[in-house]
């Protein structure tokens, strides 16, 4: 299950990522602010997100695994896809030319969610340029948002990233 944010212009060469929100917003009119609302999620719509034509990790043996979209958030825990959605995904170059990625999640349940997240950074041929980051815990209160942020160690060679999230 993947909720992705495509990066414009072929990977991170474009310094700023445009976030593509793959949630129920896809077929709804532009959002307008409404006060005093409790967040409701339609996680099934997020799970049925359309095909993404961007770069992906694919198996050596064709069709032996689901492809893993790059510049995206990868759920490694199916149950989580029914409990939260990825509201936004961002990537940018820092002042030292490393890459900073950030994802904002929404807890769609009435209980506190504890998730783990980590990031992988790859070069233009999808070779990992550094070890995966350490798992970070993100605690999201009921119907609230939680933000995960990570930075690469390497600089210009980083062209793709992948954020993995899993249950605690």
């Amino acid at each position: 299950m993947i909720r992705r944010a495509a990066l414009g212009g072929g990977g991170l060469a474009a310094a700023t990522a445009a976030a593509l929100l793959v949630t129920a917003l896809a077929d709804s009119p532009p959002a307008t602010a409404r006060e005093n609302q409790v967040v409701k999620c339609k996680t099934s719509k997020a799970r049925k997100a359309p095909e993404y034509a961007g770069a992906a990790l694919v198996a050596n043996v064709p069709r032996s695994m689901t492809s893993i979209d790059l510049n995206a958030v990868q759920f490694t825990d199916k149950a989580l896809t029914r409990e939260m959605v990825v509201e936004g995904l961002f990537a940018r170059r820092t002042e030292t030319d490393t890459v900073e990625v950030s994802a904002r999640f929404v807890n769609c349940t009435g209980r506190q969610l504890i998730i783990r997240a980590r990031s992988n950074f790859m070069d233009e041929v999808q070779y990992p340029v550094e070890p995966s980051s350490a798992w970070q815990r993100v605690i999201i209160q009921p119907y609230a948002t939680g933000v995960y942020r990570e930075r690469s160690m390497k600089r210009d060679e980083v062209k793709y990233y992948l954020i993995e999230i899993a249950g605690e």
Binding site: T94, S133, A134, W135, R151
Partner: peptide, 15 residues
């Protein structure tokens, strides 16, 4: 592991 990883990445992003 998590804290040292975070600190390393943060220092490397500090101009």
């Amino acid at each position: 592991l998590a804290m040292s990883d975070q600190m390393v990445r943060d220092i490397l992003a500090t101009p």
